[in-house]
Computed example of a mutant assay.
Amino acid sequence: MGSETLSDQAPSRRDEYAEMTRQEVIKAARKLYAVPGYAQTTVDKIAREARVSPATVYAQCGGKEGLLRTLMDIWTTSPTVGRIIADSAAAPTGRTKLEVLAAGYAAHAEEAGDIMRIIERAAPSSPAAQAFLDVADQRHIEALEMIVEGIASNGDLAEGLSVEDAAKIIFFHFRNPQLVLAVETFGWGVDRGTRWLVDRVAAAILKD
């Protein structure tokens, strides 16, 4: 008993309630930032949607910008991202690594595509949103570099192409606007759209 630390103790009911409240505020912000949009959403509207006071929105989540940062973190640090990296690392060839990555992009877009669109749409008129988008893009590229390092270690990376440049090529083709363009705007669907993107990326970064 004497060796028990604070981190070993179960959360109190007060802590559990605070976390439940925080999650309700995040849920409300995610809904309202999508429609009517980030610029049109006020802290008062978030508070009404979450059934809390505006003061709670500030105290629990840092207001509008704090909530947008939280959503960006949900998008870029979800367990899905870790699984994509691990599954790509386990794939045996450069081509199969890209195929695993493409499937992961589709799954991640299904999970967090609304957050991607929220931040991308808010960025042109909000310096804070642009800053969060820049952080998200940097995290994205760093994750891709880990995958490309696996391709390079297999000897499948094109001669003369750096890991950094290969990651940027993948980023260019698979980031959310291009994926949406291929899958939704062109009407190709997930299978055809991601297969086409894999073909383009493979031609650009893999050995012949």
Rank of each mutant, 00 (worst) to 15 (best):
G2C: 01
E4F: 02
T5R: 13
T5S: 15
L6S: 07
S7E: 14
S7G: 01
P11H: 08
R14S: 15
A18M: 04
T21L: 10
V25N: 04
V35W: 08
Q40P: 01
R48I: 04
E49W: 00
R51G: 02
V57D: 06
G63Y: 03
L67Y: 06
L67P: 09
D73S: 09
I74V: 14
S78T: 11
P79Y: 04
T80F: 01
V81A: 05
I84V: 14
I85Q: 06
A86R: 14
D87H: 10
D87E: 14
A90R: 15
A90S: 13
A91W: 06
P92L: 11
T96L: 03
T96E: 14
L98R: 05
L101H: 15
G104P: 06
H108S: 12
H108N: 12
A109I: 10
A112D: 13
I115R: 07
S125A: 14
A129T: 12
A129D: 12
D134Q: 11
L144D: 11
G160I: 00
V163D: 09
A167P: 08
K168V: 05
F172H: 15
N176F: 10
P177M: 03
Q178P: 00
T185E: 12
V190D: 03
D191K: 12
R195K: 14
A203G: 11
L206W: 04
D208L: 02
